[in-house]
Computed example of a mutant assay.
Amino acid sequence: MKICMLTSGHDVYDNRIYYKEILSLQKVYDEIYIVAPGDKDFITEDGVIVKCFPKRKNWRDRFRPMKDMYNIAKKIGAEVYHAHEPDSFQVAVKLKKNFGSKIIYDSHEYYPEAFSEHFPKIKGLMEKVIYTYEKTLAKKADCIITVNDILVDKFKKYHSNVQLLPNYPVLKDKEIVKEYNDIPTFIYVGGLREDRGIYKTLEAIKLVKVPCKYIFIGPFESEIFKLKCEEYIRENLNNKDIVFTGKIPHIEVFEYLKSSHAGFVLLQPNNWRYVNAEPIKLFEYMITKNVVIGSDFPMIRNIIEPSGSGLLVDPYSPEDIASAMERLAENIEETKLMGEKGFIEVNHSYNWAVCEERLLSAYSALK
């Protein structure tokens, strides 16, 4: 079976698309393509054939990339086209109509809610329009894949073949050996944005009385937010051990995670999509034996509480966040034990091996 992944906005080496789905499918299928934004065609070291089209200039630049994607994809002549956004799935629908291909819609996000945020004055109206657009397209899928129970329930209202494949991490071959820093170390990995709790975390650090180290890994979302954080640090946190690394290679991120004690997942409550999310970062902390300091939202609570792998806080309260940090810093042996519990839970329940079996079964049913 010839398989072609289609994406209008994700990177070729997107973690879910490439390192999870494609590498899982390669265990059964030999010929896999991916059509994605990029500068030039190439073949990956795993033998995946990459066909590229120019990246879109901004979020409004949607039609030209879709045309480019279709022209490339039709020449591939795949038996299955697996699309990762409404835009790329519209291309898949056209390929099915013209060539009889099987098509999969892989919905990773709350697309109607996310896209409508570009239109704050008519957000409610745009959300309904995009929801109707997505529903009309998704009905044409041979299979729908999605990442959480909320989205499964949404799609099951109008489609009979919906598969749940959460964004669980791929297990490493060997158990991680921690090399803890001498002082309690707290880490954040990801884009540095206000709605991901970065500024609230800085406000909390000011209140922590125990000596600790703080590491923030990733790029700032904007120069304005970067300046805002730098000003706060300069005026309030000169006596704190804080490191901002910027964006660094994955292997270096892993080295930092090996030495840290706890990680922040402090999504803010003013974004409905965040309140109803299972952040992949949560599982990545758990798999590296880091305790999670997480927003007290239902989906995060359902993972943290049963496993005893973290502390839930009000993500809008610097006092609550600071209290959690002090508890972990003052009880290091308990903190290490919580990290071990998270690692055990990921290995038992929250790992990609569970999803791989479902993915291969879904593909097998398309034959």
Rank of each mutant, 00 (worst) to 15 (best):
I205M: 07
Y13S: 12
I224D: 02
I144E: 01
F216E: 00
K156N: 10
K140G: 01
T335D: 10
K157S: 14
D14S: 04
N58T: 11
D142Y: 03
K97R: 06
Y33M: 10
G342Q: 05
L192I: 14
G47W: 08
N148F: 14
T288I: 04
K74D: 00
E109C: 06
S323K: 08
K367V: 08
Y316P: 00
I332Y: 14
V50M: 07
N15Q: 13
S309V: 08
S309G: 11
Y18N: 02
R234P: 04
N290Y: 03
E179K: 14
Y70F: 09
L202A: 03
E127Q: 09
K172I: 11
I287T: 07
D314M: 13
D149N: 10
G294C: 09
A204M: 05
L312R: 01
V152G: 02
E255H: 13
H10Q: 15
E85T: 04
E175L: 11
K289P: 01
P65T: 15
I3W: 04
F264I: 13
K102L: 04
F283H: 09
F155Y: 13
V50T: 13
E333Q: 12
D173G: 10
I34S: 00
K67F: 07
A322V: 09
I187H: 04
Y133T: 04
K139G: 01
L95V: 00
Y81M: 08
L207Y: 11
A83Q: 01
K247S: 13
H84F: 06
T44I: 07
Y274M: 09
L95G: 01
R358N: 09
T185E: 10
D46A: 10
V313H: 03
K178D: 12
Y13V: 09
Y111P: 04
E356Q: 13
I32Y: 12
K228D: 08
L366T: 14
K2F: 07
I332M: 14
M69N: 09
L207T: 15
K140P: 00
P298T: 13
K94H: 10
I104K: 02
I130P: 00
C229D: 08
V162Q: 01
V80Y: 05
N270M: 06
N239E: 11
H118P: 07
D173F: 07
L366G: 09
G218F: 03
N161W: 10
R60N: 14
N181M: 13
M126K: 03
K172G: 15
K140M: 06
K27Q: 08
I321S: 02
I321T: 01
Q268M: 08
E85I: 01
A262Y: 06
L164K: 06
N290L: 07
L164H: 14
E21G: 05
V28A: 05
F53P: 07
I72Y: 03
Y350K: 08
K341E: 02
T7D: 02
N347F: 00
N98I: 04
V313G: 06
T132E: 12
T136A: 15
M5A: 06
D41M: 14
L95Q: 00
R64A: 15
P86H: 05
S364N: 10
K178E: 06
I321P: 00
K74N: 02
K281F: 04
D296V: 00
Y105C: 05
S107N: 04
V12Y: 01
